[in-house]
Simulated assay, not measured.
Amino acid sequence: MPLILTEEQTMLQEAADGFLADNAPIAHLRKLRDDRDPDGVSRDLWRAFGEMGFAGVVIPEAQGGLGLGAVEAGVIAESLGRTLTPSPFMGSSILSAKVLTDAGSEAQQSWLPRIAAGEAILSLAVDEGAKHAPSRIATRAERSGNGFRLNGAKGFVLDGHVADALIVVARADEGLTLFLVDPKSAGVEIERTAMVDSHNAARVTLTNVAVDADAVVGEVGGGEPVLEASLSLGRACAASTLTGAGDQAFKITLDYLRTRKQFGKLIGEFQALQHRAAHLFTELELARAATLGALQAIDAGREDAGLAASVAKAKAGRVAELAVQEAVQMHGGVGMTDEFDVGLFMKRVRVLNELLGDVGFHAEQLARRQGF
């Protein structure tokens, strides 16, 4: 399959770029940060996201969504990377929507139209330690009456402090299990995490949280394949966001090279900087190709889709990091001041690299699949 967007996907990209540029530019992030907004995210913007159809991009049409695929989700995720917009898109429209679409009961899937409309925010609570490690879940689900009691702690729960519902990954005797949990339930404590990129996450502590059997998403002990499918889509979309952030940082840098003068010449005329810019351009194109390939693999249902998502996340992470480092260096000392946007991109890329597994995590995934 060609590694290019179709005409329809290109139109979606233009619509997303235009909407975010008009309604949620980088100034939107700065205002939320500087005003110390208690939510750190705009519910009005999220509803507008729903009105545009973006919030329901992968949700089936029968549930109020657009019923599109991973590539289209990646297109929107890349646009979010360009503007650094704080949004529940990843936690709700990608990770949680994928879980509920694949394995949710009829009652649980009633959340999907609300997500698609931008009326509800859901969060997938997976990680527990300093690093992404879904194979080492310690949160326990003990049987109690006709339900379960959950005990454990989660970190890096995207938008968990404003979530209307949580999908909690826990380990029961039968194996990994997913639970739909009301964040207002007794025993649930949620603390907002102040992240360096001014985006939103939370720590969630579960202490003897009682849930009924109908809170189980899918089957007891059958959560691993459902979780892995959601994480693969999330990783590919995170790679798209990284690509968008890296590409926008590169464009900002190019504009600076074309206008900043040193020793009576535009600094973009210096051959050394031209070489670095050319190298970065080729790396960004490779990252974009790897990411689109992973999204297409997910849509095609290929067996190696998870592996392709790991390749994309690792490649996009390295390239985006290179892009923001080059941006700061080519701007000189002013690149680290808050007045210039490139510093914000550096912070965002740093957080995105940790989200759903850093380069080291995905390199290990690839090595294990190759038998090392």
Rank of each mutant, 00 (worst) to 15 (best):
V334S: 10
A229V: 09
G145Q: 03
I26P: 06
A97R: 02
D17M: 15
A186H: 15
A172K: 07
K154L: 04
A24Q: 01
K154D: 01
G268Q: 00
V157T: 09
Q262S: 15
G91E: 00
A27V: 04
E219R: 12
L32T: 06
G155K: 09
A141Y: 04
V226H: 12
L122H: 04
A73G: 09
F263D: 14
V181N: 01
L95K: 00
L286Q: 15
K261R: 14
A163M: 04
D102R: 13
A320G: 04
R276N: 10
S96P: 03
E354N: 14
A170W: 01
P86R: 02
L231S: 03
V351W: 06
D341V: 15
S42I: 01
G333A: 14
D212S: 10
E269L: 09
K313S: 08
M1A: 15
V126E: 01
K265R: 13
E321D: 12
D255R: 11
A314D: 03
E128V: 02
I94K: 01
A277V: 11
Q9M: 06
A305P: 02
V204P: 00
L122T: 02
M90L: 10
A277F: 12
D37Q: 14
L122S: 05
W46C: 03
R30Q: 13
Q248P: 03
V211S: 10
P25N: 08
L284K: 07
P113Q: 07
A309H: 07
G293F: 06
L5T: 07
P60T: 06
F263K: 14
S310R: 00
L12W: 03
F263G: 14
T291M: 11
S92F: 04
E191Y: 11
R149G: 07
F89Y: 13
G268I: 05
H362N: 10
M336E: 14
R171G: 08
I267K: 12
T83M: 11
A239L: 05
G223R: 04
G147R: 01
A327E: 01
V71P: 01
A320H: 01
V209D: 00
G221C: 07
T6L: 05
S96D: 05
A138F: 12
W111F: 07
L366E: 12
D44L: 08
T177R: 03
E219F: 11
W111I: 00
Q63M: 12
D214C: 05
